[in-house]
Design a protein around this nucleic acid. Structure first.
Lengths: 153, 153
DNA sequence: GAGGAATATGCAACTGAGTTGCATATTTTT
DNA sequence: AAAAATATGCAACTCAGTTGCATATTCCTC
């Protein structure tokens, strides 16, 4: 096992963890591999919960990014199905990676009305509402919960 | 059966259908019986689906009402539990009467991504997510569906 | 690699739902 | 009827998200 040359180490560190995976995802989606898309994908890959635009921007350590770019980048990632809008809270959208989602529904989100923190209920899956016999074509079912989180209860 | 005096007829007509019921609801809730609250409650009682502020204001035939008053009126009705925020769509809140709701969840809402119309699925009830054993105290569970309505499918 | 087409970014200015302060009007209580 | 409590309207504001346009970056072809 010969160690990779030093500049490759530096390069990897500079690109940050998950950069290669992000590039791969973008290539498959046929999107330009831009600094913005790679960085935002990395942030979302590391996030434990959905994030707002300003929270995403706040985690971009390498370089500041205008909110316009953040929104437009998210929009492009949503279009190709890599990201989705998880929910709105206090008039702001929260975004998250679209993996861990089954075909028609993602995991439920629980938002604590006391501390405002949102928890992804990854291991909870409610049945799909049976409304196709009425002529509805369900694209997506979303479940939101509100109440007190374990810490606040 | 003596008919009520004519001015009572006129008065009932002027107050509109459901005015008495609205007054009753407000009295029980210990809120002032104002023109705004009565009128908005009537609109919501007759609505087949959740309405935005401007849609509510647009249905007030008697007298125009400032949007500030509509929002503050809805806020007061929400505080006492007569109304609730059903969902947001395109950055706007949709309001509806809080009846027809069980303790912890209301009926699901289906919004058509083609025509934008929302349908209340009054006869659909999903089980509550079982997360209380994890320490969560669920106050409200909300289910949103997206796709194509029968007319658009 | 150079050049050019396609696409992405940033700035500044805008949009629009919802909010706030304050003076005035209405409702309820005494 | 007067006083206390609360509601309304206006104008001005907030702030998440959007748009037009000039510039910069990415990718593709040679």
């Amino acid at each position: 096992m010969t160690p990779p040359p030093q500049d490759e180490f530096l390069d990897a560190a500079k690109r940050g963890r998950g950069a290669d995976k992000a590039r791969q995802m973008l290539k498959v989606a046929q999107l330009y591999c831009t600094e913005a898309r790679i960085a935002i994908l990395q942030v979302l890959m590391q996030a434990a919960r959905p994030l707002r635009q300003d929270q995403i921007a706040g985690q971009l350590t390498e370089r500041a990014m205008s909110k316009v770019t953040v929104y437009r980048t998210l929009e492009s990632l949503i279009e190709v199905g890599l990201v989705h809008r998880a929910f709105t809270y206090q008039r702001a959208w929260y975004f998250e990676l679209a993996d861990h989602c089954t075909e028609h529904q993602c995991h439920p989100h629980f938002t604590c009305t006391n501390c405002g923190v949102t928890h992804c209920l990854m291991d909870v899956l409610l049945p799909l509402a049976k409304i196709s016999q009425k002529g509805f074509v369900v694209d997506r079912q979303q479940v939101r919960l509100e109440g007190l989180c374990p810490a606040c209860a």
